[in-house]
Amino acid sequence: MSAAPKENRGPIVPGVRVRVRAGSGARSAWVSGVVVDDYADEATAGGHEWAPVRRWAVAVDDGTLVFVDDGDIELVTPGGS
Rank of each mutant, 00 (worst) to 15 (best):
W30Y: 07
W50R: 11
G47R: 08
E42N: 11
D38E: 13
V31N: 09
A51P: 00
H48T: 14
S32V: 08
R27H: 06
A45G: 14
G33N: 06
S28H: 09
V35F: 03
T44Q: 09
D37K: 04
A40C: 09
V31D: 09
S28P: 03
G25R: 02
T44A: 14
A26I: 06
A45F: 00
R27E: 14
W30L: 08
G23D: 03
H48C: 10
H48P: 02
A29F: 01
A26W: 04
A22N: 12
V35D: 00
A40Q: 07
A45I: 09
W30V: 01
V34T: 15
S32K: 05
W50A: 09
G25M: 04
W50M: 12
G23V: 03
A45Q: 15
E42G: 11
G25W: 08
A45H: 04
G33V: 02
W30M: 07
A45K: 13
S32P: 06
G25T: 07
A45D: 12
W50E: 14
A29E: 15
A22Y: 08
W50F: 11
G23E: 05
D38R: 08
A51Q: 09
D41G: 14
Y39M: 13
S24T: 07
D41K: 01
D38I: 06
A26S: 12
V35W: 03
H48M: 13
G47S: 08
R27P: 00
A51Y: 02
A45C: 10
V34G: 02
S28V: 04
W30A: 05
V34W: 00
S28I: 06
V34H: 01
S28W: 05
G46I: 05
H48Q: 13
D37L: 06
G25H: 09
E49K: 14
S28E: 15
H48K: 06
D38H: 09
A22M: 13
A29V: 10
D37N: 07
D38V: 06
A22P: 04
S32R: 12
G47Y: 06
H48G: 07
G46E: 05
V31S: 07
S28F: 01
G47H: 08
V35L: 03
